[in-house]
Each structure stands twice: as C-alpha cells, then as structure tokens.
C-alpha cells in the first residue's frame, strides 16, 4: 500500500498554475497539500503555458514535504490526458479528478496515470488519485467512486457546481450542502478513504469560514479545500487536537492497555465511562496531534 494514502490532509490549497508567483513557494504557509490547478483557474488559451509551468515547478521546486496534487481538466475535455502526462512526468504526488461521476471515470484516469508512470519511468502506483464530486450523480455514486481504485485516497465535495446541479445556491448556512456532506463522509468512511470539504469563497468573512470548518470537523471530514493562505492557520487550529483532548486521549489509551491486561473491560477516565470502543478514536487523536506537531509523546 502506498504509505501516503493516509497522510495528514487538513488543508489543501488551490493554486493557479498560470501564475508562477503563486506556485513558486507556497510551502512557506505550511499547507498539508497544494492543489496545482490546470482546470477552472486557467484561461482556455493558457492551458499549454500552465502545463509548462507545472512541469518545471514539479521538477525544479523543493516543496519541502507539502503534497503536490494536480487538478486536471475534466474528462469531457480533450485536455485531461496530456495534463496527466505532464503531471506524472513532473513527478506529482496525486491527481485530482474534477466532476467525477462514476467509478469508470476513476478507472479511465487510473489507466492514463499508469501509462504515464511507465512512459516516464516513475514507480508504478506512486501517483495517488482523489476525486472531486460536483454533481448529484457523483454524490450518489460516492461509495463506488471511493472503492474504484487502489490509488484512491479520498473524495472532495465541490460545492459550486454541486449546488448548481441541485438547482440551488450557496447560502452560507450549509443547509444546501448537508446531504452531500453526510453522504460523502459516510461513503468515504465505509470505503476507508479520506473526505474533504468544499472551498469557502468569502475571504472577508473569516468568522463564517471558522464556523464552516468547525462544522465539517464535527461531521468527521479530514480536511478542507482552501483558496487563500490566510485560511490555513484557522483550519489547522480547528483540526489540531487541544491539549485537553491530547491528555485525555493519552489516558484512554494507557488505561485501556493497562485494564485489558488486568481483565477489566469497562472503567472511568476523568469521570467518563470508557471501553474498548474509545481506543481507535483516542489513537487517532494522538496521531493527528503528532502530525500537527503538538504531541511529542510515544503512544
């Protein structure tokens, strides 16, 4: 299994490949992943130039551990295959498929990725895939999309196109996204892949953004697509476990391990009833805390 399938992806920042100034050093903002965009942000007549910048950026720039995901053009265009060849030749970490509707879409991309890996001498299976769901059909097929490929690490909601398809608009309350979010997180968890939320486009409303991130975190999402580096600290703050949560998780893991040896199944920690069902959750909290750099313990 590719070890990067489960890496930390709290923040995935879109960057327009048409703008070299944006893609030259986004790692200073410390996002977990960058989404190097060849699709919507790039003007139709600049697609070639964007690919050229992308390839050289991937080849020349040390992104210092930040994951490099390339958003290719839609499968309904005549651009996506060449996008994949450039991205894989450049050595990207993953491909993001826009407007994914079926497992077959993923398999077409997978075949192209595999061919490119062979053509450019990249390790087979090294390029991961994620799928953006942007329509009712895509959301309904979420589970089969999640389970369509060994390379699949997660699905992401793309709220703009999705709400258009639903014949509504983004309201700011999240009501219109509720069904998709619920369906997608359930499907992703059932398939054992990650799930990412849509962008929040109003940069003047950082409080609204904060509430939105809090909501999706509570729902179980792994992270969020973002459009501006200002949003990164907020996402990381919300996704990073608090010291209180870390201490509690440490106690839970420690107590479960100890009590198990003593043949005790259920007990209390800080007045809360704890049993084996809490074990994985506590472990996840500690892993997230460690990945976020706020936990240096050895559990």
């Amino acid at each position: 299994m590719n070890p990067n399938l489960k890496r930390l992806r709290r923040s995935m920042m879109f960057l327009n490949c048409q703008k070299p100034g944006l893609i030259k050093d986004p790692y200073v903002y410390a996002p977990d992943s960058i989404l190097l965009d060849l699709e919507d942000a790039v003007a139709e007549r600049e697609k070639d130039a964007a690919r050229y910048s992308l390839y050289h950026a991937l080849q020349e720039i040390d992104y210092r551990g930040v994951e490099r995901v390339v958003r290719i053009n839609g499968l309904d265009s005549d651009l996506w295959e060449e996008d994949i060849r450039c991205a894989v030749a450049g050595g990207c970490d993953a491909i993001r498929i826009p407007k994914t509707e079926t497992a077959e879409d993923v398999r077409r991309v997978e075949a192209a990725v595999e061919a490119a890996e062979k053509d450019y001498g990249r390790e087979l299976g090294s390029t991961l895939i994620m799928a953006a769901l942007e329509s009712a059909k895509g959301v309904m097929n979420a589970y089969s999309i999640c389970t369509s490929s060994e390379r699949m690490f997660g699905i992401a909601l793309s709220g703009g196109d999705y709400t258009k398809d639903l014949q509504t608009t983004i309201s700011g309350t999240g009501v219109e996204l509720m069904g998709a979010r619920q369906n997608m997180i359930i499907a992703a968890r059932a398939a054992g892949v990650q799930c990412f939320d849509t962008v929040y486009t109003n940069l003047n409303d950082m409080e609204g953004f904060r509430r939105d991130v809090q909501t999706i975190k509570t729902m179980g999402f792994d992270g969020k697509s973002i459009i501006n580096p200002r949003q990164i600290p907020i996402v990381h703050e919300i996704f990073t476990p608090t010291q209180k949560e870390i201490v509690f998780a440490e106690k839970v893991v420690h107590e479960i391990d100890t009590k198990k040896a003593q043949g005790i199944g259920v007990f209390t920690v800080d007045g809360k009833m704890i049993d084996i069902a809490f074990y994985d959750g506590a472990k996840r909290t500690l892993a997230l805390a460690k990945a976020s750099g706020v936990y240096k313990g050895d559990i």
Binding site: V28, Y29, L203, N228, P229
Partner: peptide, 8 residues
C-alpha cells in the same frame, strides 16, 4: 494587510 506572507 490581508497578505498572509506579511501577516506571518
């Protein structure tokens, strides 16, 4: 400023 680099 809203420039994250300057804010950093």
């Amino acid at each position: 400023t809203t420039d994250q680099r300057k804010l950093m």
